[in-house]
């Protein structure tokens, strides 16, 4: 169950997407998400889905594996769809007791669902193909200008990197504690909201204790290996753009151009 969450985890594979500079992938993901909201017509979605499909194929990660990562966010998806479906004013199609479904509601809810799915898959493509270290290196370097504004860029990216590194370990730990409590008759699945919240105490208390113990151990291990913040630190894998990265940027530019031309010339959205 918890093993299924794939967001934030790295999937080892030797693909062209894996080899790209993390800055390219970061820029690509941000760009993709912006475009997803800027071009919200049928054409925009088809292009977005197509582009994502090609990228996913290029990563060589099994599509099924990626889809499993969507499961935990289905709940959020349902809620958004639900609100849009019932609360959008417009041409009324169906009335269910006090709730009305409108034509506009269906369209907006449908768009929202597609957009969210694409957004989540694109974000997980980035984390699945980029190690947390690369990711934070990329962030650190592209956000370096914030240093001048006294934003602790290195510290923030180190924290992110560690958080990502420990996600699978803490998930495993959660799974284990959950099983241990189920073996003692715990029930996490039935009952009302309050009963369920109460049932979580035997899970959360040990989990927090374990997380603090790990954090403490890790801090000690980092200090023992001479970690003292970003000053004077060198890089094992400094980021340098290669040919592939420039091509990737070019492809992104091409993608924007196609969308723009389609909109301006053909009126497609």
């Amino acid at each position: 169950m918890l093993r299924d969450i794939t967001i934030g985890q790295y999937y080892q594979e030797d693909s062209v997407i894996h080899r790209l500079d993390p800055r390219v992938k970061l820029a690509g993901t941000v760009l993709y998400i912006v475009l997803l909201f800027a071009f919200e017509g049928i054409f925009g979605y088809i292009m977005a889905a197509l582009a994502l499909f090609i990228v996913v194929k290029l990563t060589r990660i099994p599509f099924k594996y990626m889809i499993r990562g969507l499961k935990p966010v289905v709940m959020i998806l349902m809620i958004t769809v639900f609100f849009n479906l019932f609360l959008t004013p417009g041409q009324v199609l169906v009335v269910l007791w006090k709730l009305t479904i409108t034509k506009e509601g269906i369209i907006i809810a449908g768009k929202m669902a597609i957009r969210l799915c694409l957004l989540i898959i694109s974000a997980s493509v980035m984390t699945l193909t980029t190690t947390p270290n690369q990711l934070t290196d990329g962030l650190e370097k592209s956000m370096g200008f914030l240093n001048k504004a006294k934003v602790p860029v290195h510290e923030i990216s180190m924290m992110m990197s560690i958080a990502l590194r420990f996600i699978p370990i803490l998930l495993e730990e959660t799974d284990k504690i959950m099983k241990a409590q189920i073996a003692r008759g715990a029930d996490f699945e039935t009952g009302g909201l309050i009963k369920r919240a109460k049932a979580l105490v035997p899970l959360l208390v040990p989990l927090f204790i374990a997380a603090f113990r790990r954090a403490n151990d890790l801090a000690m291990a980092m200090e023992a290996r001479c970690y003292r913040g970003g000053d004077g630190r060198t890089k094992m894998k400094p980021l340098i753009y290669k040919k592939e990265d420039r091509i990737a940027y070019a492809i992104m530019m091409g993608y924007i151009l196609i969308l723009l031309i389609a909109r301006v010339v053909c009126g497609l959205r």
Binding site: K176, K179, A180, A183, V205, P206, I209
Partner: peptide, 10 residues
Amino acid sequence: VFQYPEHQLF
């Protein structure tokens, strides 16, 4: 009884 069962005490 799981491994390191003391980790389940709460």
